[in-house]
Design a protein around this nucleic acid. Structure first.
Lengths: 173, 173
DNA sequence: CATGAAAAGTTATTGGT
DNA sequence: ACCAATAACTTTTCATG
């Protein structure tokens, strides 16, 4: 929604902070950027309205909730045309945290969290494989998730912490 | 880090709200749960200390930042033993947002965001395939990411919004 | 786009049950 | 584990440059 909006260095800096900590106070960001809190507020609102920012999430460690198994599941469909319908069903499977339509051997790639292998088996056999249009599945179990992060935003060090009115003068559109 | 902590219904309810909106005020959560803001604060802190909560993130739409291509890349290693070393290199590739050690044909599965196909090709050929230990790669391009979300937390409707001191009485450990 | 100032709201802390 | 009270801080809005 909403077309391209140009993000200047301050916008990028704001994002780079909030991507790491969504609860970082705007005033603290303001101090880092050398502009007022109200300006941060306006910029964040603008980025939300433009659809650049799509909310925020607390990150919970799946293992702490008892989800010890993470797997990627490639799902082949009888026909590609089943995709839209299948997605609606997949959305209702709580164990699935991600769903993609991909090129290659499968049509759909899922990321799934389960309590254990039995639970995974149950989800695969009794839920995924019963979705209309699903031909077969192939499962890759993640033995180690080395990291997970947001897309890269330039974290320019240009606008230094400055008491008054320095910085904030890079390339305002 | 820290062992198993039992999460009661209120803890789960707190998580279920913050997973959807990391900036939801604790006081608002408190009103929803029928307990005080201080109690929410204490519970969240406890869950942070226990390692259940692993920070928070602003969600930015990759397309809005000019990342139009999302791909999963299966990476085969000459020997599994290269994994640890490879991860250290992979971590420094900004386009990679996720990295897993997986069972099956590949050893490593990456999720990558790029500006366009040229950019993806560049990352694959000039970066990923030059990592020590990497034998070959197989790329699945995501043509549509239907959804992405956090792991499922029970969102019990038990503790209703109540002015005073109802609720908050489920199964406190 | 920016700002400062004011009002309203929130967070973090403390002391008590 | 909880609460109420408090002090410090933050968010949000608005008139203004």
């Amino acid at each position: 929604m909403a077309g391209k909006i140009h993000l200047d260095n301050i916008d990028q800096k704001i994002l780079s902070y909030l991507i790491k900590n969504a609860r970082m106070p705007f005033l603290e960001i303001a101090r880092e950027c050398g502009i007022s809190g109200a300006a941060i507020h306006q910029r964040v609102k603008k980025m939300e309205d433009a659809g650049i920012i799509d909310g925020s999430r607390l990150i919970v460690k799946p293992k702490a909730l008892g989800y010890d198994v993470c797997a990627f599941v490639g799902v082949s469909l009888i026909q590609t045309s089943y995709y839209t319908e299948a997605v609606e069903v997949i959305k209702r499977i709580p164990e699935v945290v991600e769903c993609h339509f991909v090129t290659g051997d499968y049509a759909v790639l899922l990321k799934i969290y389960c309590r254990d292998n039995d639970h995974l088996l149950d989800v695969l056999v009794n839920t995924v494989q019963k979705i209309p249009g699903v031909a077969r599945t192939e499962t890759l179990i993640s033995l180690d998730q080395a990291f997970e992060r947001q897309v890269y935003v330039k974290d320019k060090k240009t606008a230094k912490t400055s008491k008054k009115g320095t910085a904030a003068k890079e390339e305002n559109e």
